[in-house]
Design a protein around this nucleic acid. Sequence first.
DNA 1: TGAAATGTTGGGGCG
DNA 2: ACGCCCCAACATTTC
Length: 477
Amino acid sequence: MSTLIWFRHDLRLADNPALAAAAATAEPVIPVYIFAPREESPWSPGGASRWWLHESLSRLDGNLRAVGSSLCIRASEDSLTTLVELARECGARRVVWNRRYEPAVIARDQKIKTALREAGLETASYSGALLHEPWTIRTQSGGPFQVFSAYWRHCKELDDPAPPEPPPTTLRAPAAWPKSHPLDRLELLPKRAWPAGLEAAWTPGSDAAHVQLERFLEQSFDDYGSRRDRPGLRGTSRMSPHLHFGEIGPREIWHAARRYALAHGRHSSWKDSQFLTEIGWREFAHHLVFHFPKTPEEPLRAKYARFPWRSDAAGLRAWQRGATGYPIVDAGMRELWRTGWMHNRVRMIAGSFLVKDLLLPWTEGARWFWDTLVDADLASNTLGWQWVAGCGADAAPFFRIFNPTTQGTKFDAAGDYVRRWVPEIAGLPNEWLHRPWEAPAPVLEAAGVTLGRTYPFPVIDHAVARQAALAAFAAVK
DNA sequence: TGAAATGTTGGGGCG
DNA sequence: ACGCCCCAACATTTC
């Protein structure tokens, strides 16, 4: 009885419970990927994600070919119809997949499971994307957690997640392969020259994910706590897009970190390492979006629904383009545009600027990030923006307003990050790099900077903006 | 996983 | 020696 393995956000062969279950039968296995973006509307993949997906599917096909199989790709308006067609074409009697947790996807998958069973097919779904599925974690009173530290403490007290399954060494091919669309048919690559920066910055795919994880553990795991907040360094794991697409699973990361820590003599506190805590935030984000399914669009704290956000097309555009006049913000927004990624510290700074200096709705930020991030993930993006706007679970209080100059001075003291992404002010000395509008005229001239021409004046005065934000906050207090 | 305003303390200069 | 002031450094409160 052959089996369709329906790949989704689990584009890997190792640590893939659905694939392992399909392979375990020794019957034919038909790997399929169905691109049906309209089903995920309004959160169908953005531009940067599509680029990544294109590359990742190509790699997955390569990995499958290495074990005697291949990936069947379909563009579709309706995943259910396509699954039924595929099953008919190759005589499959069973469909298996790993679960996802976004509200719209859960609803779709539920319908598909029911319909497939009514059509006489067996179905089974598995847990592959999280250490702990959202409904398995409850507070003592039975509700979902809303405070990260309590949530993660609880998770760490549970049994360790099972070690990852090894990849299958061979997959039995079906007698007849179903017809596959060529990858280009999905039209995932952008028309413009955008991908050049993405290609230079990233290597998608499961193999690259594992190489990157090992490199991170060797080079940065020990110093992660002290280096992760400095965007000029390469101190973070850069696992986020790989995790989003499931090119690597959190169980693999958990056990790799454990192995590394124990091999280096840290037997007691490895679970408390800052790196695994960040994995915990990813888990928490999924926990929240599952239990509070409206939060991608609406603030979790209801009173924020009446926050007096402004409307300012020019301000939004300046932010998106990296032309706010605040170097650390502009550097972040340009890194995002060029590489599809932004350092997490800078996401907080740039996010705070949009929401609290420009007083623009956090949903605008979430939208822009959704289209430009290669790691755009509904759970993490929602948590991040609700955190920065102060309207989410365990969020930063609204009055915690980042000062872009102070943050720049603190976390990019040597100016490496700003100089890399805002080269037109690279000639400024460190003392003025994060506040060029205050630099003496001769300093600006010596650096070849003409404010208003080669680099913008600040779009808004931070001290004034801060007061306005606090006044606006009074409206919801 | 802030920042600014405000309060407190203590050292040193000075009459 | 003492009181007074200034102010930096640190702590606390407030937004």
